[in-house]
Design a protein around this nucleic acid. Sequence first.
RNA 1: AGGCGCGUAGCUCAGUUGGUUAGAGCGCUACCUUGACAUGGUAGAGGUCACCAGUUCGAAUCUGGUCGUGCCUACCA
Length: 921
Amino acid sequence: MEKTYQPQQLEDHWYKIWEERGYFKPQGSGDPYCIVIPPPNVTGRLHMGHGFQHAIMDALTRYERMRGRCALWQVGTDHAGIATQMVVERKLNAAGSSRQEVGREDFVKKVWDWKEESGGIITQQLRRMGSSLDWSRERFTMDEQLSKVVEKVFIDLYDEGLIYRGNRLVNWDPQLHTAISDLEVISEEEDGHLWHFSYPIVGEDTVLTIATTRPETMLGDTAVAVHPEDERYKHLIGKEVDLPLCDRRIPVIADDYVDMEFGTGCVKITPAHDFNDYEMGKRHELEVINILTDDASINENAPEAYQGLDRFDARKKIVADLDSLGLLVKIEPHKLKVPRGDRSGVVIEPYLTHQWYVAIQSLAEPAIKAVEDGDIEFVPKNWENTYFAWMRNIQDWCISRQLWWGHRIPAWYDEEGNVYVGSDESSVREKYSLDANITLRQDEDVLDTWFSSGLWTFSTLGWPDDREYFDKFHPTDVLVTGFDIIFFWVARMIMMTLKFTGEIPFKKVYITGLVRDEHGQKMSKSKGNILDPIDLIDGIALEDLIEKRTADMMQTHIKEKIEKHTRDSFPEGIVGYGTDALRYTFYSLASTGRDIKFDIGRMEGFRNFCNKIWNAARYVLMNTEDKAVANSIDLNHCSIADRWIMSRFQHTARAMAEAMADYRFDIASQALHEFVWNEYCDWYVELSKPVLWNEEKKPEEAAASRRVLLSVLEQSLRLLHPFMPFITEEVWQKVAPQLDIEGDSIMLQPYPEFDADKVDTEAETHIEWLKGIIVAIRTIRSEMDVSPAKSISVLIRGLSDEDQNRLDNYGFYLQKLAKLESIEALGAGDEPPPAATGLFGDIEILVPMAGLIDVEAERARLEKEISKLQNNLKSVSAKLGNEKFLSNAPEAVVTKEKEKQDKANNALNALQAKLTQLEAL
RNA sequence: AGGCGCGUAGCUCAGUUGGUUAGAGCGCUACCUUGACAUGGUAGAGGUCACCAGUUCGAAUCUGGUCGUGCCUACCA
């Protein structure tokens, strides 16, 4: 074995073997366990969020697989309609072409080509994370079988009247030329203006002043609204105003939606270009005048002077024109929420179009109930509030998109515009008994990507025709995902799955936090603070990292800022830490209900942990290969340390099981780390040395310890495997044969279960005693500046009979671990020599001073200890002096405090005696 | 405007039903290359648990408020 752990060489090696041998397929007769992957964008790249979520899903899957469940982690990718189409379109544009130029059919072909070309990257990256996904069942949302499910669901919902075509305002992206759902609109506060304009009142010499943030929409105004109770304007209700710049008179109406306090208290109403105005328009039967084109330019419904102008150019011209008419009153700076498309980033227009909708109400009710009843549980639970809040106020879902990449809507129109829905043209003709001479054309639109994602748990498992996997694995056990897609995806999956399968899609929803950078900033391209999980695994040179982070940046000053920040954060670039270290870092940070700040320092610590495991294995193998190892564990031959470590292992196994049941990966990782490093390596390995290397020990005792060293290491590897698949496999392959364990891979071995019978309280008590004495001696050595190389003689007194027995039995450990020349018990009557003193309970440990100890240093040390004890004693005594405490606190608590007091008093007396003795010198 | 979080050691985070001397890792200090490991060992230093008030014999933990901070939802033109 190498002296240090080298992850690069063995990760690919083992992954390939696991995959080739089919270990990721569900096997065995255990209870089925299933997780479906949140399908990543087929042409996307792995980011930290993926890394985090896949680390968790893989830990769960490997854990349950080892526990004997028939485990399936279902893999697949998403066609990601808008995102993917945009990438291909951008490539076309860069080449001087456009999607319109190549036409729909060829464009879609080009997207498929792009999918073939880049679609392997993300799946390759998932493999690098060690994910035990069943690749033989890989699915894609646009696979034939999954597309069939999409079609069936659409048709069934339509036939049931739950999908309908509506003409209403939608969020329109004027760059992508498509409708998008509410969820795809990001509203952020931006600096804008509030323009005050006057509209002349018909038949009067006065004007009415309105305030607006969007002057250009006045071309589509069909009313002005005031509050019915507004004394300033009450008399104008029912009158008309002349709409400036347009040859139109519009009414003044009253509606209590109007806020009297805001602006002038008068609102212009543009039903075609504002959601509220649209609703108000409906209430007052106002005319709806659309003044925009698909690209958000002014259309032919507006006065000629403005036709063809872009919306923002039109705004300038309108403001100028109103000004020259003397109707511009003032312009105030104003902060407002600007809706932008989450993909395109352009300002979204409310726009009147025909779109397809899902009538969501009847689907939402059972989906709410499923969570209310606890059939589906969110972890952490408070996300349920978010879910309920949205679901109880849910709006119909606009599912059509004016894109080319996606599932084409299975609807046909005849020349009169009648709609027919079916799986293809011929079945539509049959279904609706249409004559052959009627011409049909298919709807041009495709479905929202989330429509197919909503069917993901059952479509990937073969529903409805190939039901073997569906029947076995559905409902799935847990969904692991981010809170950002609770509405997009989780809620819709619950609704669609309940509707079509009658089952919930999953029993638990584990919501992960967002992965942020080390300063708590969101990772984003524009901030240039992205970390690529693969770079953390393999390492990356500083210059390459800077290049990567600044490649697409146009502005030099931003580029420079990112470069500086990157140089500061990673002066040496990033060394590769390996997959196991990355995964472990995610677990350690995965406390529930909290975003995680990714700290590379922690990852380095876990890389070191890998190395620790590696070297522990080297030690064990060095001391067991070609040596006598007991065939089985015989407690009669085991040392007290052997018994202790086996017992401690049980506690760890129990902690692990509890943490995993609660999805507390942070607690689990800490328990494992603590056991392996602090108990196995720091203590047990050291305690094994005097047994293995002591000539006077019987051979069968050494053989027993060798067995225990191997056995506990082997079990620890299994305990660790779901978190660190690679290193545990590599080491296990070397350790298992020493124990004659049969099996081809650790990942198919049973998971260690807690066994109360194997807890050895007696051994734990003895070792705690031993540790206490050793630490006390070491502390004296360290504080008295005694060279670690120097053996010392130690006196000990205040021993009970049991202590004396322990000293007889385990003294050889003390000699080795505290580097002692000798240790002797001092009789009760013996006068102790001047010495440095340490206490462990009632036991006094004396290191005689003879030239070793500096009197002043010891005095200072004692005084420090004494003052610590006095403080301690003060607070304990205060409690015990409080009558109310004595009468109200539970007896156990009072007893405990009394014990504390006694102990502190004894210790104090002992130390004070020492101090007196010292001062007498 | 409503809702949900968070504020514990220099940094990143634990702290279960109120009872610990408030913990871990990284970083820091001192000493040490001892036959697994310097990606290491041993021993340490470091916290008025954001602030205020209350409940209680007892509060990091429960209640109310204040401040700071992050996010989500909402129709203020």
